[in-house]
Measured scan of single mutants.
Amino acid sequence: DETGKFLVLALYDYQEKSPREVTAKKGDILTLLNSTNKDWWKVEVNGRQGFVPAAYVKFL
């Protein structure tokens, strides 16, 4: 159920650099879980949760 969740689009490829991050490919649609940090947003992609740089994604 996606009610109340926001989707964001990956603008660039991002390769995770730590276990707390997730890899995303340009064009991926990610479920935004938390955007309270202006630099790192928590997302879910391909069943995995983790952080990506906020500058790499935008709201749909």
Rank of each mutant, 00 (worst) to 15 (best):
Phe51Leu: 07
Glu16His: 08
Ala54Gln: 03
Lys25Trp: 06
Lys5Tyr: 13
Tyr12Ser: 06
Phe6Cys: 15
Leu33Arg: 00
Asp13Val: 07
Arg20Leu: 14
Arg48Met: 07
Ser18Arg: 07
Thr3Ile: 13
Lys26Leu: 08
Leu30Ala: 02
Tyr56Pro: 00
Pro19Tyr: 10
Asp39Ala: 09
Leu7Asn: 04
Val45Ile: 15
Leu33Pro: 01
Gln15Lys: 11
Leu60Asn: 06
Lys26His: 05
Val22Lys: 02
Trp41Lys: 00
Gly50Arg: 00
Glu2Gln: 14
Ser18Gly: 13
Thr3Gly: 13
Tyr14Cys: 12
Lys25Asp: 03
Lys38Gly: 10
Lys17Leu: 08
Leu7Ala: 04
Pro53Gln: 05
Arg20Ile: 12
Leu30Lys: 00
Lys5Ser: 11
Val22Ile: 14
Val43Phe: 03
Val57Lys: 00
Glu44His: 03
Thr3Pro: 13
Trp41Val: 08
Val52Arg: 01
Phe6Trp: 14
Thr36Asn: 12
Phe59Asp: 07
Tyr14Leu: 02
Leu60Ala: 05
Leu32Asp: 00
Arg48Cys: 10
Asp1Gly: 13
Lys5Ile: 13
Glu16Ile: 05
Gly27Arg: 03
Phe59Gln: 09
Glu21Ile: 06
Val43Ile: 06
Thr36Ser: 13
Thr31Val: 15
Gln15Val: 15
Gln15Asp: 14
Lys25His: 11
Asn37Ala: 06
Glu44Ile: 06
Val8Met: 07
Lys5Ala: 11
Val43Trp: 01
Glu16Thr: 07
Thr31Glu: 07
Leu7Phe: 14
Asp39Asn: 12
Val22Gly: 03
Arg20Ser: 12
Arg48Pro: 04
Pro19Trp: 14
Gln49Leu: 07
Ala54Phe: 06
Thr31His: 09
Val45Ser: 08
Ser18Ala: 08
Lys42Pro: 01
Lys25Leu: 08
Leu32Phe: 04
Asp28His: 05
Ala10Gln: 06
Lys38Leu: 08
Asp28Pro: 03
Asn46Arg: 10
Asp1Asn: 14
Thr23Asn: 04
Pro53Thr: 08
Asp28Arg: 02
Ile29Ser: 02
Ala55Ile: 11
Asp1Phe: 14
Val45Gly: 03
Phe6Gln: 12
Tyr14Gly: 02
Trp40Leu: 01
Tyr14Met: 02
